[in-house]
Design a protein around this nucleic acid. Structure first.
Length: 594
RNA sequence: GUCCCCAUAGUUUAAUGGAUAGAACCGUGGUUUCCUAAACCAUUAAUCCGAGUUCGAUUCUCGGUGGGGGCACCA
């Protein structure tokens, strides 16, 4: 464990967690049960300090004592702990809050110590050290264009992967493509009946989409066509060579188009184990679940009920269709098994919109029973949900319901809008650099717009909202970082040559506010990574950029006084690395100039 | 019918049961001989309704109202 003492060792990287351990020790030493005294340390309102503990209030009430007196006794006990020293100020406030304020010597020491993105990463890995996560995200349906509704799982998934990995986890990114479902019956049916080969040659994805839509419309009208489409799927699943060849062709075209979007968003996968990968693995699922009497036959289909469960006692989990074909429940069960046995994973995270909650709850319940009965270790399962992107009509934007905006188109529009602003603000940039800036700003704004709000809510699609470039947006953060780069360029100073030993004290309120905000990075990152809610990190970065902007406007960095200059350059540089680290965790490209 | 999610300034939103509910956009007014004004500073304005639990409720419980979604072979 790091020691808190200045000068002896590295200062605590994660002050909050270490402080909480210390408080817990103090409370134990007072013979108070941890169930009675909530020792949680939380970030405090900056008006009161850096951290806060409010356990004395409820403890005092329960035990009919004076909360301020309880707080005073806890503080006395804390002062006896030798991992704390004079770098921390502890005080009682209001009805009995314990406030902790880091003294500036500690802030400075922390800033001097944690000096690069790599160093921050190395120090953050305790949270998920050595834990394995399979993260299943994006997972689009092959042969359909991605539209605006698909952006959420991609950007949330990518950000979560980056954060987990930053915090020490072994992350396996798996794109569970919908490449084996019923839609293939329709695509094959469409391909065989309505193909325009000329159109396929010029714009394959467009034509495939048209075929799918056409087949979908026809099968909705005509039960016989629907039956034929289902037969195509059954034949595909039975390995009919012609259908398999067609299926492979469709997938190849589809993947190429999807990949372009991943490249723009800087998203990568370790595996593309789509539903088709599990096609020879569903038999085992049927067999085991039947033998274990977890699954039963109902109306010709194989289903699982959960009688003990209010909702799923009567709502079936259909794991094999009555025509014998698999569906997504079949492949998802096989996927649970594969991820558990092959990847030996500790956690499975699946990122989809909240409308699929029932499905994944049923999947989880079923897997629990299945694994328990077969002595398999069940990984922690997290269904990370998000709200739906709605159209103007308040209904989900869907490909089926007609012309929704393509993701590809949205990305182009984002870059174009940003390009216009770049040309306006900074007309002298070389065209190539202007284009690069526009791309980072436009795509970054789009990603940030989605990540910066709590993922559970729905929202109505609006160009201006997603592509906004003012206020709490990516460009604001990118701009703050670009200005810092500009300072170092102007000064002709390299960050590695900062004369750290000459820096002795933080003086102005802006310097101190900035330093406090920088140290709060750790707590915010931890909270984001534990709750899997990227908007917490966004809010933090936005506040950090705001505190920096105030500092920048009030405290000139490049002054003649070398001591002042050195400490302000230190603050600038540490702000830069934390801003850049944060933006990279969100999958946003950073810029040296804007 | 039943179950799930959501409800905060005009708009978009934040707040692990804590201190005076925090921002952004819009509006209004101000800041540039000075490191990038894509900036900074100031200013108006909000917890859907009703009970309950609690020292303390935007947060938890119950009951309403309004919106969205799931519920047999789509994913």
């Amino acid at each position: 464990m790091h020691n808190f003492l200045i000068g002896r060792m590295e200062p605590w990287f994660d002050v909050q967690t270490n402080l909480e351990k210390t408080v817990r020790r103090a409370v134990e030493a007072m013979s108070i049960s941890h169930t009675e005294f909530d020792a949680s340390v939380r970030l405090a309102d900056p008006r009161f300090g850096d951290f806060q503990v409010n356990g004395s209030l409820s403890y005092a009430k329960k035990n009919q004592q004076n909360p301020r007196e309880v707080a005073a006794r806890v503080i006395e006990q804390l002062k006896a702990d030798d991992s704390l020293d004079e770098s921390l100020e502890i005080s009682i406030a209001g009805p009995g809050f314990i406030n902790f304020t880091l003294k500036t010597a500690f802030l400075l020491n922390w800033l001097k110590t944690y000096s690069s993105e790599e160093h921050l990463k190395a120090s953050s890995r305790e949270l998920y050290r050595d834990e394995t996560f399979v993260v299943d995200f994006s997972s689009p349906n092959a042969a359909k264009q991605m539209h605006v509704g698909h952006i959420r799982t991609i950007v949330i998934g990518e950000a979560i992967c980056r954060m987990l990995s930053f915090c020490g986890a072994n992350v396996i990114r798996d794109n569970h493509m919908g490449d084996w479902g019923t839609q293939y019956g329709k695509i094959l049916y469409g391909y065989k009946h309505f193909l325009d080969s000329k159109a396929l040659a010029t714009d394959p994805l467009e034509e495939l989409e048209r075929l799918y839509k056409k087949a979908n419309a026809v099968t909705e009208e005509d039960p016989e066509a629907l039956n034929e489409a289902r037969q195509e799927l059954v034949q595909l699943q039975n390995g009919d060579p012609q259908n398999i060849a067609l299926w492979e062709k469709v997938n190849k075209l589809s993947l190429e188009a999807i990949d372009e979007i991943y490249q723009k968003l800087d998203v990568h996968f370790d595996h593309y184990l789509g539903e088709s990968f599990y096609r020879d693995k569903v038999e085992q699922v049927y067999q085991e679940l039947t033998e274990l009497k977890i699954a039963e036959e109902s109306k010709g289909a194989m289903v699982v009920f959960h009688p003990e469960h209010r909702r799923f006692a009567t709502q079936p989990f259909i794991i094999r269709k009555s025509d014998g074909a698999s569906n997504y429940a079949s492949t998802d069960l096989a996927t649970m098994l594969y991820r558990t046995e092959h990847f030996k994973t500790d956690h499975i995270i699946i990122i989809t919109d909240s409308r699929q909650s029932d499905h994944f709850e049923q999947l989880h319940l079923t897997t629990q029973k299945w694994f328990e009965a077969t002595n398999r270790k069940l990984p922690h399962f997290h269904h990370v949900t998000f709200g739906t992107i709605l159209g103007e009509d308040g209904k989900a934007i869907k490909t089926r319901s007609g012309d929704s905006i393509r993701l590809k188109e949205l990305l182009v529009e984002a870059e174009e809008r940003a390009h216009a602003i770049v040309n306006d603000k900074n007309p002298d940039l070389p065209p190539k650099e202007a284009a690069e800036i526009a791309s980072a700003v436009g795509v970054g704004a789009l990603i940030y717009a989605d990540l910066s709000q709590n993922r559970t809510g729905d929202y109505v699609f609006a160009w201006d909202k997603l592509l906004s470039l003012e206020g709490n947006t990516a460009p604001y953060l990118l701009y703050a970082a670009a200005r810092i780069h500009s300072i170092f360029r102007k000064a002709g100073i390299d960050a590695s040559s900062l004369p750290l030993e000459e820096i002795t004290e933080l003086e102005t309120p802006e310097e101190q506010n900035l330093a406090r905000k920088l140290i709060a990075f750790v707590s915010n990152l931890n909270q984001t990574a534990t709750s899997l809610r990227p908007h917490i990190l966004c809010t933090y970065l936005y506040e950090l950029a705001g505190v920096f902007s105030s500092f920048y406007n009030n405290n000139k960095v490049l002054v003649n006084d070398n001591e002042i200059k050195a400490r302000r350059l230190l603050l600038c540089h540490r702000t830069l690395i934390i801003l850049e680290t944060g933006l990279h965790l969100l999958s946003i490209r950073t810029l040296k100039r804007m």
